[in-house]
Amino acid sequence: MHLEYKVQGGNFSKAGHASGEIKKVLKQLNLNPMVIKRIVVALYEAEVNIVAHAYEGDIIVDIDDSKVHVVLNDRGPGIPSIERAMEKGYSTASPLVREMGFGAGMGLPNIKKNTDELNIKSVVGEGTTVDFINYL
Protein backbone atom coordinates (compact mmCIF):
# COMPACT_ATOMS: atom_id res chain seq x y z
CA MET A 1 0.00 0.00 0.00
CA HIS A 2 1.29 3.40 -1.01
CA LEU A 3 0.55 6.80 0.54
CA GLU A 4 1.81 10.26 -0.38
CA TYR A 5 1.52 13.59 1.38
CA LYS A 6 2.86 17.08 0.72
CA VAL A 7 4.41 19.13 3.50
CA GLN A 8 4.78 22.89 3.39
CA GLY A 9 7.85 24.45 5.00
CA GLY A 10 7.13 27.08 7.64
CA ASN A 11 3.48 26.14 8.02
CA PHE A 12 3.60 25.31 11.71
CA SER A 13 -0.15 25.29 12.19
CA LYS A 14 -0.32 22.30 9.85
CA ALA A 15 2.74 20.53 11.26
CA GLY A 16 1.81 16.98 12.19
CA HIS A 17 -1.18 16.84 9.86
CA ALA A 18 0.28 14.17 7.56
CA SER A 19 1.49 12.13 10.55
CA GLY A 20 -2.02 12.23 11.95
CA GLU A 21 -3.49 10.98 8.67
CA ILE A 22 -0.95 8.17 8.43
CA LYS A 23 -1.62 7.24 12.06
CA LYS A 24 -5.32 6.80 11.21
CA VAL A 25 -4.43 4.42 8.40
CA LEU A 26 -2.00 2.40 10.53
CA LYS A 27 -4.53 2.03 13.32
CA GLN A 28 -6.95 0.35 10.95
CA LEU A 29 -4.41 -2.20 9.80
CA ASN A 30 -4.50 -3.98 13.15
CA LEU A 31 -0.82 -3.38 13.77
CA ASN A 32 0.55 -3.65 17.27
CA PRO A 33 -0.18 -0.30 19.02
CA MET A 34 3.43 -0.01 20.20
CA VAL A 35 4.67 -0.44 16.62
CA ILE A 36 2.27 2.26 15.47
CA LYS A 37 3.40 4.54 18.24
CA ARG A 38 7.07 4.28 17.29
CA ILE A 39 6.34 4.94 13.61
CA VAL A 40 4.12 7.90 14.38
CA VAL A 41 6.59 9.47 16.78
CA ALA A 42 9.41 9.16 14.21
CA LEU A 43 7.13 10.42 11.46
CA TYR A 44 5.95 13.38 13.47
CA GLU A 45 9.51 14.41 14.30
CA ALA A 46 10.56 14.10 10.67
CA GLU A 47 7.51 16.01 9.44
CA VAL A 48 8.17 18.83 11.89
CA ASN A 49 11.79 18.90 10.69
CA ILE A 50 10.59 19.65 7.16
CA VAL A 51 8.25 22.36 8.42
CA ALA A 52 10.94 23.89 10.63
CA HIS A 53 13.89 23.76 8.24
CA ALA A 54 12.86 23.22 4.63
CA TYR A 55 10.84 25.03 1.95
CA GLU A 56 8.73 22.07 1.02
CA GLY A 57 8.75 18.32 1.10
CA ASP A 58 6.84 15.15 0.63
CA ILE A 59 6.21 12.02 2.62
CA ILE A 60 5.97 8.65 0.93
CA VAL A 61 4.82 5.66 2.91
CA ASP A 62 4.86 2.08 1.66
CA ILE A 63 3.31 -0.62 3.75
CA ASP A 64 3.45 -4.36 3.23
CA ASP A 65 2.86 -7.27 5.55
CA SER A 66 6.39 -7.20 6.95
CA LYS A 67 7.33 -3.53 7.22
CA VAL A 68 6.45 0.12 7.01
CA HIS A 69 8.86 2.09 4.84
CA VAL A 70 8.80 5.88 5.11
CA VAL A 71 10.68 8.34 2.92
CA LEU A 72 10.64 12.07 3.59
CA ASN A 73 12.14 14.23 0.86
CA ASP A 74 12.61 17.93 1.28
CA ARG A 75 13.89 20.85 -0.71
CA GLY A 76 15.78 22.92 1.80
CA PRO A 77 19.11 23.97 3.27
CA GLY A 78 20.32 20.41 3.90
CA ILE A 79 22.26 19.23 6.92
CA PRO A 80 25.98 20.15 6.93
CA SER A 81 26.93 17.41 9.38
CA ILE A 82 24.54 14.52 9.85
CA GLU A 83 26.82 13.18 12.54
CA ARG A 84 26.41 16.31 14.65
CA ALA A 85 22.68 16.47 13.96
CA MET A 86 22.37 13.02 15.43
CA GLU A 87 23.74 14.29 18.75
CA LYS A 88 21.12 15.00 21.39
CA GLY A 89 20.59 18.71 21.90
CA TYR A 90 22.30 19.81 18.69
CA SER A 91 20.05 22.03 16.62
CA THR A 92 20.33 24.51 13.80
CA ALA A 93 16.79 25.79 14.27
CA SER A 94 16.34 29.56 14.15
CA PRO A 95 15.47 31.44 17.35
CA LEU A 96 11.96 32.02 15.96
CA VAL A 97 11.41 28.30 15.45
CA ARG A 98 12.71 27.59 18.97
CA GLU A 99 10.35 30.16 20.38
CA MET A 100 7.49 28.16 18.92
CA GLY A 101 8.57 25.19 20.99
CA PHE A 102 10.41 23.33 18.25
CA GLY A 103 14.11 22.89 17.60
CA ALA A 104 15.22 21.33 20.88
CA GLY A 105 17.76 19.22 19.01
CA MET A 106 15.96 15.99 19.76
CA GLY A 107 14.52 15.44 16.29
CA LEU A 108 17.00 13.07 14.67
CA PRO A 109 17.99 11.23 17.87
CA ASN A 110 14.31 10.65 18.54
CA ILE A 111 13.76 9.36 15.00
CA LYS A 112 16.72 7.02 15.40
CA LYS A 113 15.34 5.71 18.69
CA ASN A 114 11.96 4.92 17.16
CA THR A 115 13.00 3.28 13.90
CA ASP A 116 14.57 -0.06 12.98
CA GLU A 117 16.57 1.21 10.01
CA LEU A 118 17.39 4.84 9.39
CA ASN A 119 19.18 6.34 6.44
CA ILE A 120 19.72 10.08 6.06
CA LYS A 121 21.14 11.69 2.94
CA SER A 122 21.62 15.39 2.61
CA VAL A 123 23.10 17.85 0.15
CA VAL A 124 23.73 21.32 1.53
CA GLY A 125 21.71 23.88 -0.38
CA GLU A 126 19.50 21.24 -2.01
CA GLY A 127 17.71 19.16 0.54
CA THR A 128 17.49 16.15 2.76
CA THR A 129 16.08 12.65 2.46
CA VAL A 130 15.15 10.80 5.61
CA ASP A 131 14.44 7.16 4.89
CA PHE A 132 13.37 4.77 7.60
CA ILE A 133 11.93 1.30 7.99
CA ASN A 134 10.05 -0.23 10.89
CA TYR A 135 9.45 -3.98 10.82
CA LEU A 136 6.08 -5.33 11.89
Binding site: Q28, L29, N30, L31, P33, I63
Partner: peptide, 22 residues
Amino acid sequence: NPRPIEGLDKDISVAIKKMEQK
Protein backbone atom coordinates in the same frame (compact mmCIF):
# COMPACT_ATOMS: atom_id res chain seq x y z
CA ASN B 1 -6.09 -3.34 29.56
CA PRO B 2 -6.23 -1.65 26.19
CA ARG B 3 -9.11 -2.77 23.99
CA PRO B 4 -8.46 -1.03 20.67
CA ILE B 5 -11.13 -0.67 18.01
CA GLU B 6 -10.72 -3.63 15.70
CA GLY B 7 -8.92 -2.94 12.45
CA LEU B 8 -9.90 -3.95 8.94
CA ASP B 9 -8.65 -7.51 9.26
CA LYS B 10 -6.57 -9.65 11.59
CA ASP B 11 -4.24 -10.62 8.75
CA ILE B 12 -2.05 -7.65 7.90
CA SER B 13 -1.80 -8.35 4.17
CA VAL B 14 -5.59 -8.65 3.95
CA ALA B 15 -5.94 -5.48 6.03
CA ILE B 16 -3.63 -3.63 3.64
CA LYS B 17 -5.71 -4.75 0.64
CA LYS B 18 -8.91 -3.69 2.35
CA MET B 19 -7.34 -0.35 3.24
CA GLU B 20 -6.55 0.26 -0.44
CA GLN B 21 -10.10 -0.65 -1.39
CA LYS B 22 -11.41 1.57 1.34
